[in-house]
Simulated assay, not measured.
Amino acid sequence: MSLVINHNLMAMNAQRNLSDHYGRLGVSTRRLSSGLRVGTAADDAAGLAIRELMRSEISSLHQGIRNASDAISLIQTADGALQVVDEKLIRLKELAMQASTGTYNSDQRMIIDSEYQAMCSEITRIAHATDFNGIYLLNGNLSGDPGVDHDGTGLQATGPLKIHFGTGNDSAEDYYYVAIQGSTASSFGLGHLAALKSSGATWEAQNAGKSISTQALAQSAMEAINQAIISKDKIRANLGSMQNRLENTITNLEIQAENLQAAESRISDVDVAQEMTEFVRNQILTQSAVAMLAQANSLPRMAMQLIGG
Rank of each mutant, 00 (worst) to 15 (best):
V4W: 04
N6R: 14
M10D: 07
N13I: 13
A14P: 02
Q15F: 13
Q15V: 11
L18R: 00
L18C: 07
H21N: 15
G23R: 05
S28F: 09
T29L: 09
T40I: 06
D43C: 01
A46T: 11
I50Y: 06
I50M: 09
E52R: 10
L53H: 12
M54G: 11
S59L: 08
S59E: 09
H62I: 06
G64R: 01
G64C: 04
A68H: 03
A81T: 01
A81R: 00
L82V: 05
Q83K: 12
R91K: 06
L92R: 02
S106L: 14
Q108H: 12
R109L: 08
I112K: 01
S114M: 09
S121N: 14
T124Y: 07
H128V: 00
N133W: 02
L137V: 02
S143R: 01
G147M: 07
D149Q: 07
G152Q: 10
P160W: 08
K162C: 04
H164C: 03
G166A: 02
T167K: 10
S171P: 15
A172I: 10
Y175E: 03
Y175P: 02
Y176V: 06
Y177Q: 08
G182D: 03
S186G: 00
S187K: 04
G189W: 08
L190H: 02
L193P: 00
L196Q: 04
K197W: 07
A205P: 05
A208I: 02
I212V: 08
I212G: 01
T214V: 05
A218K: 01
M222C: 06
E223Q: 14
K232T: 14
K234A: 15
L239M: 10
T249P: 08
E254L: 08
N259K: 07
N259G: 10
Q261H: 10
Q261Y: 09
A263E: 11
E264T: 03
S265R: 03
S268F: 06
D271I: 01
E275K: 09
M276D: 09
E278M: 12
F279P: 03
L285F: 13
L285C: 07
S288D: 10
V290C: 00
V290R: 05
A291M: 11
M292Q: 11
L293W: 00
A294H: 05
A296K: 00
S298F: 01
L299S: 03
M304W: 04
